[in-house]
């Protein structure tokens, strides 16, 4: 009986946290993030969205990272969510127009916990996730970099360490901290299943190499990048 009461109490507390979190999401986040889907179906519609879709957040993000990041948000995409809206012509190449970038709102740790609870309940439809799954295993950073950069050219758009790599996509050296491994496998195997108009191409990476790329991202995420910056 005692355990049943404890279980019910925990379930109730969890439901309450999620309810509070959803209220915060609706009030403070829905202006920039889509919470109900579907993904944008045209390029113009995508550009209207000010931040990443969150209607599948519970299948994408690691909760622990979400809670920490919402309290102390830090830019993940050097050129913002849509790079085309935050660049300007430079002398040698197009440059990031920092004046157009706005910081993400900060939440208190209590609110961050509520919001993370609510976000984790927003699961992706089965057809988005597909059958992709991370199979575990590990790889050295040097071999992983060969698969990621030399064989597949992913560094063209992604930084593999602070200040090194492409700037239009999100940094990848913290990707495994942010994202669930199964999501990474699924997204790399078909970015368009998640976001039909994403500027990330489907490079048709062979499945074993997708596993290696996720292993590489996990190896990268073990580095203490904050200390190295």
């Amino acid at each position: 009986m005692k355990y049943l009461l404890l279980f019910l109490g925990f379930t109730f507390a969890s439901a309450t946290l999620a309810d509070d979190g959803m209220a915060i999401l609706q009030k403070r986040c829905a202006n920039c993030h889509d919470l109900s889907g579907p993904a944008a179906q045209s390029v113009q519609a995508l550009w209207q969205r000010k931040g990443p879709d969150l209607f599948y957040a519970g299948s994408k993000y690691n909760r622990e990272w979400l809670e920490k990041w919402l309290v102390k948000p830090r830019r993940i995409r050097p050129a913002g969510y849509h790079y085309i809206q935050h660049i300007k012509p430079g002398k040698k190449r197009d440059m990031i127009d920092a004046a157009t970038l706005t910081p993400h709102p900060v939440l208190s740790s209590d609110k961050a916990e509520d919001v993370a609870e609510a976000l984790m309940k927003l699961k992706a439809p089965a057809e988005m996730m597909g059958a992709a799954a991370f199979k575990g295993g590990s790889i050295s950073v040097s071999f992983g970099e060969m698969v990621f950069d030399k064989f597949n050219g992913c560094m063209a758009c992604h930084e593999i360490e602070p200040g090194y790599g492409g700037l239009s996509g999100p940094e990848v050296y913290t990707a495994a901290k942010r994202y669930q491994a199964d999501y990474l496998v699924s997204f790399i195997s078909s970015p368009q299943a998640w976001n039909p108009k994403t500027p990330m191409p489907n490079k048709h990476v062979a499945e074993p190499n997708i596993q290696k790329i996720v292993q590489y991202l996990q190896a990268l995420a073990k580095e203490n990048w904050d200390e190295k910056k």
Partner: peptide, 20 residues
């Protein structure tokens, strides 16, 4: 959406990503 990131806003090949 897709080409600017590397080929540049004016299409001259000097896009945001070319540095590395």
């Amino acid at each position: 959406n897709y080409c600017w990131q590397c080929h540049g806003m004016s299409g001259d090949g000097m896009g945001l990503n070319v540095q590395d």
